[in-house]
Design a protein around this nucleic acid. Structure first.
Lengths: 226, 226
DNA sequence: ACCGGCTGTCAAAACCGCGTCAGGCCCATC
DNA sequence: GATGGGCCTGACGCGGTTTTGACAGCCGGT
């Protein structure tokens, strides 16, 4: 799950951010000064940092520089200072965005989403999003599937279903979601299709297709990748 | 050199941007409405787009969506509208940043630098100029191809396809990606073209064109360079 | 035990995508 | 005006994919 590190000495703001981010499904870590922030970032490897520039002791800009020395995780700066000079210094030090207080929570959340989306795009090309279930492994970036070392050929529809299940690994994917994602929203209700293609995926990927261990049916609801 | 596409119907602002960006060493293209912007983006492939949301005719948000359908080039929105709803809509449609008028030129330039820096990090992946498949080798720098020691002549279109495949060696390149990159985003669906040119590339590059070993078809999805 | 709803299986039929060939257009060159 | 290379268009056959239909098994409720 996505982890956001909030760095702010203002208890009110830190609290408000924690509540709102948690409600949106992010995990949240909090630090209250620069030194703590650097320690927390090194240890927890957050996917994004929200950083207040006015911190006790440390200078905010140098916190940005210290982070940028070893990580490219997005940094969204939050600040009371509206002067251009500070904004430019922060952005050039490596910040990804700069929001001035007072700020609208919804806007900040949208900017966080935008920053995360960008880094997700970058990561999808760089990293190897290789998922391994134990019986077979899937590379989402390259669009390939292996089973026992050998590559398995999937048709486009099979791949579409598997991709959605892999992206939601462990979670239940409803029949409606699957049909909407692979065939289109107007195909809701054609659960017949799902049975056909789940069966085919099990044939190709499960060690014992009759006793599925990974492509699990949740009766009445949908399917889940274990 | 870095190319920035400025989309603004306000002549003053477009002029000011052109001057300031040029002075900073960027190449600048200008469009004055949404349709022109989409055409220019497809043709010139800018490294970044500065987009005014209030355009004659077109809705700015839909311009963002249209661009995002085929490119990840950073989009910095410039707008007179300060309401949160619009900001959020623009960011969620795929904008990377949102600057409200009146804006400080230096801040805007800093935000542009920040956006370009991010995408540069992502782009620094495919920087391997000489690629060898075993049957033929490609030099992306000088745009040449050899097979069995002899240079092979490719037409511009053939080269465009091969280049994209080489840059994504091993990973699946979808038909949409190929068409958008070589012909332009409005050619999505013309998969016929791909078959013609893949066939020609195979004739020129594969040891046995009837049994391709490198230019692999992934039926229904796209092609892959092995 | 019977039924309805849901899931899994099988096979045939309809459909679509790929590769291929041939021909026509455009444009630069001679 | 003729030539030729490069690009686009149309038609066709083949093979694989998707869709359809029919049937069997499982389970909870009646």
């Amino acid at each position: 799950m996505t982890l956001v590190l909030v760095v702010d000495d203002d208890i009110q703001i830190a609290r408000a951010l924690r509540i709102n981010l948690s409600a949106r499904g992010y995990r949240v870590a909090v630090a209250h000064d620069g030194a703590e922030a650097l320690r927390a970032a090194a240890k927890a490897r957050p996917d994004l940092v929200v950083l207040d520039l006015r911190l006790p002791g440390t200078d905010g800009i140098s916190v940005i520089s210290s982070l940028r020395a070893w990580t490219v995780t997005p940094i969204v700066v939050l600040s009371g200072r509206t002067d251009e000079t500070t904004k430019i210094a922060a952005l050039d030090a490596g910040a990804d965005d700069y929001v001035t207080k007072p700020f609208g929570m919804d806007e900040l959340l949208a900017r966080i989403r935008a920053a995360l989306r960008r880094s997700a795009v970058a990561a999808r090309q760089a990293d190897e999003p290789l998922v391994d279930t134990g019986s077979f492994s899937v590379d989402l970036g390259v669009k390939k599937v292996w089973r026992q070392g050998a590559e398995v050929h999937l048709t486009p529809t099979e791949w579409g279903m598997l991709e959605l299940l892999v992206r939601n690994r462990g979670r239940l994917v409803t029949q409606k979601q699957l049909l909407a994602d692979v065939w289109g929203p107007q195909y809701a209700g054609r659960s017949h299709y799902l049975r056909i293609y789940i069966a085919q995926l099990r044939q190709k990927l499960e060690p014992d297709p009759a006793r599925p261990r990974h492509l699990i049916t949740e009766p009445g609801m949908g399917y889940r990748l274990a």
